Simulated assay, not measured.
Amino acid sequence: MLDVPDPELRERLTAALGIARWVDEVAAQAPYPDVATLVAAGRSAATPLSDAELDEAVAHHPRIGERAEGTGTALRLSAGEQSGLGRADEGVDAAIARGNAVYEERFGRVFLIRAAGRTREEVADELQRRLTNAPEEEAEEAKEQLRQIMELRLRTLFPEDGAAA
């Protein structure tokens, strides 16, 4: 049973997906019998997401390839997720930085991708592919990336053994 005091629950949920409506909806269903049920409830509450909620959530994410500034659980998680991209590569990192700038100019928000399980090269390739999306199509891809990040973070923040990460 995942029975966490409400303030701590809300803090962890906010780190998983920084959307106030989503946090309220998922917290209202607590306690959860297990992480799988929590993740399913999180996915359900995050489907669909509005464009305003996408913007609300993206505000909690640093640019891919850049160090997270500040403190807090969400930033610590972002740093850990991006550290898994492998060793720095000047050429690939420069391509990501250029792609980030083009993406922000084209779509008006930070490029968002689930970094966990990907290499720098895969991120760079995906960034280039997504630059060809229509704005509506890209918003939907970004929302799906948010859902994937949220699911991974819930599994990290609510481990089966009960010890918070």
Rank of each mutant, 00 (worst) to 15 (best):
V4D: 13
V4M: 09
D6S: 11
E8A: 08
R12D: 00
L13E: 01
T14Y: 12
E25S: 11
E25P: 03
A28D: 07
Y32M: 12
D34V: 00
L38R: 08
L38Y: 09
V39D: 12
V39C: 13
A40P: 09
A41H: 13
R43V: 05
R43M: 11
A46K: 03
P48C: 02
E56L: 06
H60R: 15
H60Y: 15
H61G: 01
H61M: 05
P62L: 01
G65L: 05
E66P: 10
R67D: 07
A74L: 00
S78F: 14
S78W: 14
G80I: 05
G80E: 00
S83H: 15
L85T: 05
G86K: 10
R87S: 11
R87T: 14
D89M: 06
G91H: 14
V92K: 01
V92W: 07
D93M: 04
A95K: 11
R98E: 14
N100I: 05
V102T: 14
V102G: 11
Y103D: 04
G108N: 05
R109K: 08
V110I: 08
F111G: 04
R114H: 07
A115R: 04
G117V: 04
R118F: 05
T119L: 03
R120M: 07
D125P: 08
R130Y: 01
L131K: 01
L131P: 03
E137C: 02
E137D: 03
E137H: 03
E138C: 05
E138L: 00
E140R: 08
E141N: 02
A142N: 03
Q145D: 11
Q145H: 08
R147V: 00
R153H: 11
L154G: 04
R155V: 00
L157M: 02
P159G: 11
D161R: 08
A163K: 15
